[in-house]
Each structure stands twice: as C-alpha cells, then as structure tokens.
Amino acid sequence: MSIIDAVLGDFFWRALIGGFGVALIAGPLGCFVVWRRMAYFGDTLAHSALLGIALSFLISVPLNLGVIITSVVLAIALMLFSRNKTLATDTLLGILAHSALAIGLVTLSFMPHVRIDLTGLLFGDLLAMNRNDLLWIYGGAVIILALLILLWRGLLMSTIHEEMARVEGIPVERLRLLLMLMFALVIAVAMKMVGVLLITALLIIPAATARRLARTPEHMAALAVVFGFVAVGGGLSMSWYLDTPAGPSVVVTAFATFLVVYASAGRLVFRI
C-alpha cells in the first residue's frame, strides 16, 4: 500500500497515470473521429462540457455526471436536428458548439458564489488531478474499451460502408448512438486533463499520426494509443522542466510527434 500511496501521493505521477488512462481510450475513439469525419462534432461536444459544468453547479450534481448528461443530450439533439436537412451539419454544429459554450459562461457569471478556475476548464489542469479523477478516468476507460472490443466489427463495418453494414444486419443507428455516448464519456473524463478547447486535439492528432504508419484499422488504433502515451509523457516532462502549462504542453508534444512522423515518412499527405 505504501508504494501505491507514494506514487499516487505525488501529483506528477497522478498526472502521468491519469494521462495514460485518457490516451488509452482517446486513441481508438480518435480513430473513429478521423475515419467518420467527426472532428467538428467532437469539438461541439467538448464546448458543451462547459455548459454541463455550469448546470452541475446550478443543480448540485457531480461535475463529471453533469458533463456526461449535457453531452449526451446535445448528441441526441444533433442527431434529431440533422435529420431535418435545412441546415448543413457544420453550420448546425457551429451554432450549437458556440451557443453551448456561451450559455455556459453566462450561466457561470450568474453564480458569483461559485469560485471556478475558468482557465483550468478551458485549457486543462492536468497537474491538479486527484485520486477521484483517476477513478473516473479508469472507470470510463474500462467501460469504453469493453464496448469497443465488443462492438468493433460492427462499428468498423458501418464506418466503411453504412448501407452494406445495414444489409448485413448490423444495427447502424444504435452503434452510432453508442459511439456518441462514448465520445461524451471520454470528453467528460479528459476535460480535466487538457480542457474543453483542446480535447479534440487529443483525439485527432495521435490518430492522424498513427495513420501514416498503419496498415489495418486495429494497427492504427494501437499506434494512436502509443502516440497518445508519447504526448502525455513528453508534455508532462516539458511542463516539469520548462514550467509550461501541462494541458497545452501535451498537445504541443502530440503535434511535434505528428510533424516528425510525417516528415520522416516522406510527404505531408494523407496517403499510404
């Protein structure tokens, strides 16, 4: 117990362990974000997380729960809205993303008694991670990894060719909803780490880096996890030695890795 306490008692190790937990799920989920062109969707969910926090304070529920519920409601609202094709999806996402962010900020301003670290929410506060956060991250990771392993073939088939998947009896709509719920969950647990404005980067950059080297979807998901670990480890070291903010440092490391992999593998293009 004393070793565990010694490790978890140190803020640096807590940050590292928490970061690795997030990278473990952000890798494969990030691949789906890239494959299904859902980057802007991920951004919208992340922006709505701030609204979730404001609402959690308002009705006093745990922050993570409030964020998950808000993201889920928003994801379902998006699905319903996008059936009505009057507005293009990116327009709709733009409206909802920034409205959710703005409403969140306005709501927070109505609660002056709530002392809240806005910078931490927007850009992450990885070094302030506590044991409770670790519990959320690894709880979420177990659920998401189990779902991904269980649903992998169906998710992949419906990503490759939705109609073919439907003909083969894969419940495409239900899987899409489950994938959105998983995004909501990962955003809720990763928010503390890199903040709502940088979460999408953590999903996309390791996956895009992995694309350059991968031959199969599974290979790409595994590599995305590895590059996520590299980003977390590198970012935290950078933060430690250069005294830079931890969340942005993780994203900067991820970006640097991306550049190195693409430059060393030849051209900066999305081709094999």
């Binding site: 890239v34 494959w35 299904r36 062109r37 073939r153 992949l156 088939m157 990503t159 490759i160 060719h161 109609e163 073919m164 003909v167 083969e168 895009a208 694309r211 991968a214 031959r215 199969t216 979807p217 599974e218 290979h219 790409m220 999305f270 081709r271 094999i272």
Partner: peptide, 25 residues
C-alpha cells in the same frame, strides 16, 4: 442478401487491407 454497392467510398484516413476487409464479414 449479398450486396455489391456501386463503389466503396473508403475514407483515405482508414487503412484497410483486402484481407482485413474480407474478414470483417
């Protein structure tokens, strides 16, 4: 039903070998 769609519009970001695609059946 075996369905042969007109095209396979495969996202360029999704690496996929013939073998893996067949195994997804």
């Amino acid at each position: 039903i075996g369905y042969v769609p007109q095209h396979l519009h495969l996202e360029s970001t999704l690496p996929l070998s013939v073998k893996r695609f067949m195994q997804l059946s």
